[in-house]
């Protein structure tokens, strides 16, 4: 490691890297996502102990363990509820949530809408690989129609969930998409997402190297991806964002799809406000029973 001091003793990407070695398959898209997260966190500059990083179950849900933040690799589909509890309990924390498409849009799909409508200040990163990797290649909620897997021997008969449209429709105030094919771009949208006050969502097209064909790997994405800047997208226009989101599964747009120009107050901020307002009415805890006295 270089011994030359940096100009400002700022946190660097490596400060967020834990000693634990990823067990992902070589070539997995999640390696790039992890790098992007390190760099986004370096950009944010909050020390690791002020960060809570929650995940569910799946290959990608291993990710908190590869950071130096406080991590919680919880149970399948429940990362968002747990993260919201953490944020409400300690609003001063930076709360990140990560997981796969199955975690977020299948078993835990019911939680996404509610995290969005609460507009709680956390960043949700979904590593969307359109497959169940950890259980060996079954259909996922974002698998394209017709995909042949071990649970769709003759091809999937179901249309996929469109994660981008889903979160836009529920009113998410920040929605972006990225790919490890463009790590700088991905780090950038993750950092923007974290900086955005309120619920922010980043869908990462992070291919599965083991259960998806070569033409869908990171290298192939590099030729296919289209930055939203290059198509002149106005990221303050939710309807325009929804229009572009319709192409999910066909066109790989990267960048910020939607960013609310006038975001609503966050739930955690409102909670703090209420706590402050009502604090004066508190009787001491040891006298709480007085309210039951028939006086």
């Amino acid at each position: 490691m270089s011994s030359i001091p940096v100009e400002r003793p700022a946190l660097q990407a490596k400060d967020f890297k834990s000693d634990l070695k990823p067990i992902w398959c070589p070539g997995c898209g999640d390696f790039g996502v992890l790098q992007a997260i390190y760099r986004a966190l370096a950009g944010i500059g909050r020390p690791p102990h002020e960060i809570a990083f929650v995940s569910g179950i799946g290959c990608s849900s291993r990710i908190p363990g590869y950071t130096t933040a406080y991590g919680f690799n919880s149970v399948h589909g429940r990362a968002l509820p747990i993260a919201q509890g953490i944020k409400l309990a300690r609003p001063e924390l930076l709360v990140l949530v990560a997981g796969g498409d199955g975690d977020g849009f299948s078993i835990g799909g019911g939680h996404v809408a509610h995290a969005i409508r609460r507009n709680i200040d956390l960043t949700y990163i979904v590593m969307d690989n359109q497959i169940y990797g950890l259980t060996k290649g079954q259909l996922s909620p974002t698998s394209p129609r017709g995909l042949k897997t071990v649970t769709s021997e003759y091809g999937s008969l179901e249309a996929p969930v469109n994660p981008l449209l889903y979160v836009l429709a529920y009113g998410a105030s920040f929605v972006a998409q990225g790919t490890p094919a463009d790590m700088a771009g991905l780090a950038d949208v993750i950092e923007q997402a974290i900086r955005h006050p309120g619920f922010s969502f980043v869908n990462v097209q992070s291919p599965c190297v083991t259960f998806a064909p070569e033409d869908q790997q990171v290298k192939a994405q590099r030729g296919r991806m289209k930055t939203l800047a290059s198509v002149g997208h106005d990221s303050t226009n939710r309807l325009a964002a929804m229009g572009l989101a319709q192409t999910y599964g066909e066109v790989l747009y990267t960048g910020v799809l939607y960013k609310d120009p006038a975001p609503q107050p966050t739930l955690d901020a409102l909670v703090r406000e209420r706590q402050a307002k009502l604090a004066l009415e508190a009787v001491p805890r040891e006298r709480i029973l007085d309210m039951f006295l028939q006086k």
Partner: peptide
């Protein structure tokens, strides 16, 4: 000498580092 560094690692992405996608098990 020990003049502080002004550039940061965060400015670089995969310059001479092989792509993750370049290797397989």
């Amino acid at each position: 000498g020990a003049a502080p560094r002004r550039v940061r690692r965060e400015m670089l992405f995969d310059v001479e580092a092989p792509d993750y996608d370049d290797v397989r098990a």
